[in-house]
Design a protein around this nucleic acid. Structure first.
Lengths: 229, 229
DNA sequence: CGAAACCTTGATATACTTCAAGTTGAGTGG
DNA sequence: CCACTCAACTTGAAGTATATCAAGGTTTCG
């Protein structure tokens, strides 16, 4: 699953420049990071990191989607974010000096660049641009989470479903939203049964189309407005 | 309300060293920031900044408490945080390049240091220690907010009240918790009436004592465990 | 082809909200 | 210092969104 052979085929075609936080970096800086990274492929439903563990590196997504979530006492997941191509996951804890507060699992086959913490930290200490870019990223994340808190506490499940669908539309782009009902429920923060009933309502009202597991938005945007998670 | 006269009595005794994010800085760096700051006093219930506005500076609390919140469509506040001595509020948006996503209002008489955005940014560009300290702070904040999301979506109002009381105990320290029922409800994310009924339950069960508006925790910790907001 | 995971529907229970009305308390001006 | 007023607090009653429990159907995949 791990490879650090620079001639391994998987190591081609995955430029770190395509990772959003790294895009402001010079080619030189990108190259330094690439020297220290490993390309990893994950199968569907593979755990990437777990809450409570100490971070050992960061994970840059080249392809596939990853759910980032936290487990409640009863074992129920609350999904905080679905990360996709160009995103980095697992680096907040490094900067706060904490353990992971969240877990991450692949939702599909994924290819990621894994950058060890010491390689990364070294760059952080010498590269102001990188540090600023990361600060910007985490600041945005924190703002998004404040909005999510409000949504969770003030919106009905129905409104939350609409909002989450709009968020997911941006993530799945031209593809249809493709999550298990349980994952979708765990993102919306509701019971699976409730989610299913609401999806049916949305379908009956012509807001969405349902194609098996996949969901296509028709006029959700007209009724609800998106939040930025 | 504003003064930049260095001999004004209010400008004495308020060292920025007592602000947590600035504590790792050299005396020299602290001094540079202090040269550019203004000391401001706010009366109780005075707005400090409002969501939607462009940030113009940061607010470092020397004394008093400030609620940081966001307004729902119906005008209901969701309190995200109660900031107190040593905290800085209003600086996340600066780093994400956004407008304020949250509003802030004083809960008591407050004395703060206001540092203009350009003075602050200048320091950021030249002081790696400061940048790292801020990154650390925002990373912690983001982690705390992820926990809050889980709490909001998975815990009952009763459990949330207990958790928030424990959080507030840390903020009010030796003082008793002193918030209006409405503010407390807006932090817990519930209706004021529900909050009042639950407080009565807690009192009847011997978990808390109620002294007018003030609340003293007796054995909340034994029944619930605190989250880190 | 069989088992397991996933999905769906129905029935029931309840935590919480909302509305309404009354009480208490805090701050202000005379 | 008292009285007045507005905000804050409290209780009750009624309605509802959502969770939970139970059971059956369907897809997926080894």
């Amino acid at each position: 699953m791990l490879t650090d052979d620079p001639h391994h085929p998987k190591n081609e075609f995955h430029n770190l420049k395509e990772i959003a936080v790294f895009s402001p970096l010079s080619d030189e800086a990108i190259h330094l990071l690439e020297k220290g990274r490993k390309i990893i492929s994950y199968k569907k439903n593979h755990p990437i990191f777990m809450e409570g563990a100490h971070p050992t590196g960061i994970y840059c997504i080249h392809s596939g989607k990853i759910k980032v979530f936290t487990l409640g006492e009863t074992g129920k997941e609350q999904i905080i974010r679905i990360a996709s191509k160009g995103d980095v996951v697992g680096f907040r804890a490094i900067f706060s000096g904490e353990r992971f507060k969240l877990s991450a699992t692949s939702l599909e086959e994924c290819v990621i660049s894994y950058i060890k913490i010491d390689v990364f930290i070294e760059q952080i200490h010498t590269n102001l641009i990188l540090l600023q870019s990361i600060l910007r990223e985490i600041a945005k994340e924190s703002g998004a989470r404040a909005e999510f808190i409000k949504t969770m506490s003030q919106k009905t499940v129905r409104a939350r479903l609409a909002i989450i669908l709009l968020v997911l539309e941006d993530i799945y782009k031209e593809d249809m939203i493709n999550l298990t009902r349980e994952d979708l429920a765990n993102f919306v923060g509701t019971a699976t049964e409730t989610l299913i009933r609401l999806l049916r309502d949305f379908k009956d009202e012509g807001l969405i189309e349902i194609h098996g597991r996949k969901i296509k938005l028709i006029k959700v945007k007209e009724v609800y407005h998106k939040a930025e998670y």
